[in-house]
């Protein structure tokens, strides 16, 4: 945790930088969405990669996840696994080879 005044000053500069980067990438996201990639899935994938990058910046820097107590990482790791489970498993049930799932 940045606690001494100098460290806080440094942190402030970093925050402003990251804020600027986020804005730039927001513009990039919007622009990219108007570019026609080979298929719309590509647009989705690229868009999600950019969004994930931005989200990572927010989480790592703004929410100081780049240096946090180990316990927080553990909690978030499990949360991520379960969140992925609910994404992927539900998604897979709609992709079964027998195509039963699609009503």
């Amino acid at each position: 945790m940045a606690d001494s005044p100098q460290e806080i000053q440094k942190a402030v500069r970093k925050i402003l930088w990251i804020g600027a980067i986020l804005i730039v990438f927001t513009v990039i996201t919007v622009a990219l969405s108007y570019v026609e990639l080979p298929s719309h899935s590509w647009n989705l994938i690229v868009g999600m990669i950019v969004a994930t990058f931005k989200a990572a910046l927010v989480a790592l820097v703004f929410m100081h996840l780049n240096h946090e107590a180990k316990l927080i990482y553990k909690i978030l790791a499990f949360t991520t696994v379960f969140a992925l489970a609910i994404f992927l498993l539900i998604y897979f049930t709609s992709l079964d080879p027998l195509e039963f799932a699609r009503f």
Partner: peptide, 18 residues
């Protein structure tokens, strides 16, 4: 316990793989 939920849904036609 987070990874077993759909055993309540076998009869929904969820599909054999799942």
């Amino acid at each position: 316990s987070f990874l077993v939920w759909a055993h309540h849904m076998y009869l929904t036609g969820m599909g054999t793989m799942m």
